[in-house]
Deep mutational scan, measured.
Amino acid sequence: KGCNCRRSGCLKNYCECYEAQIMCSSICKCIGCKNY
């Protein structure tokens, strides 16, 4: 399942991608994603 966080840059544990240690991709559609 994808993540669509808006404010944290996908760097907080409530973002599913970050919590699962998945990098930003087409699945993880965080706005302004900084989780490289």
Rank of each mutant, 00 (worst) to 15 (best):
K1E: 08
K1C: 00
G2C: 03
G2D: 00
G2T: 03
G2M: 08
G2Q: 08
C3V: 01
C3G: 07
C3Q: 03
C3S: 01
C3T: 05
C3D: 06
C3I: 02
N4S: 09
N4M: 11
N4R: 08
N4T: 08
N4F: 12
N4W: 05
N4H: 07
C5H: 13
C5A: 04
R6K: 14
R6M: 00
R6E: 14
R6S: 15
R6H: 00
R6C: 12
R7E: 15
R7H: 10
R7S: 08
R7C: 04
R7Q: 15
R7K: 12
R7I: 05
R7G: 15
S8N: 04
S8Q: 10
S8I: 14
S8E: 10
S8C: 02
G9L: 01
G9V: 05
G9A: 05
G9S: 00
G9T: 07
G9H: 11
G9Q: 05
G9E: 12
G9R: 04
C10H: 01
C10G: 08
C10T: 06
C10S: 07
C10M: 02
C10F: 11
C10I: 00
C10K: 05
L11T: 10
L11R: 05
L11C: 02
L11I: 04
K12T: 07
K12M: 05
K12A: 11
K12Y: 00
K12F: 11
K12G: 10
K12L: 05
K12R: 04
K12N: 03
N13Y: 02
N13V: 01
N13E: 10
N13P: 06
Y14F: 05
Y14T: 07
Y14P: 14
Y14N: 15
C15W: 00
C15E: 10
C15A: 04
C15R: 04
C15G: 05
E16S: 02
E16T: 04
E16M: 07
E16D: 02
E16N: 00
E16H: 03
C17L: 06
C17G: 07
C17E: 03
C17P: 05
Y18E: 13
Y18C: 09
Y18N: 13
Y18P: 10
E19A: 09
E19V: 07
E19D: 06
E19Y: 15
A20I: 01
A20V: 07
A20G: 13
A20S: 11
A20L: 07
A20T: 07
A20Q: 09
A20D: 01
Q21H: 06
Q21E: 14
Q21D: 02
Q21T: 10
Q21K: 10
Q21G: 12
I22G: 15
I22Q: 15
I22V: 12
I22R: 12
I22E: 12
I22N: 15
M23K: 10
M23H: 07
M23P: 08
M23N: 03
M23L: 03
M23T: 03
M23A: 08
M23C: 06
M23V: 09
C24G: 12
C24L: 04
C24T: 06
C24H: 15
S25G: 13
S25M: 05
S25N: 15
S25H: 06
S25L: 03
S25P: 02
S25V: 02
S25Y: 02
S26F: 01
S26C: 00
S26P: 01
S26W: 00
S26Q: 13
I27D: 13
I27G: 15
I27L: 09
I27K: 14
I27A: 14
C28M: 04
C28H: 12
C28F: 10
C28T: 08
C28W: 01
C28L: 01
K29W: 08
K29Q: 14
K29S: 12
K29G: 15
K29L: 08
K29H: 15
C30R: 03
C30H: 02
C30A: 06
C30W: 02
I31T: 14
I31F: 08
I31W: 09
I31L: 11
I31V: 14
I31C: 11
I31P: 12
I31M: 13
G32E: 11
G32P: 10
G32C: 01
G32T: 01
G32R: 06
G32W: 04
C33K: 09
C33V: 10
C33A: 11
K34A: 14
K34I: 02
K34N: 13
K34T: 13
K34G: 15
K34V: 14
K34D: 15
K34P: 14
N35T: 08
N35L: 00
N35R: 11
N35G: 14
N35W: 07
N35E: 13
N35A: 14
N35K: 03
N35M: 00
Y36K: 05
Y36N: 12
Y36M: 15
Y36R: 15
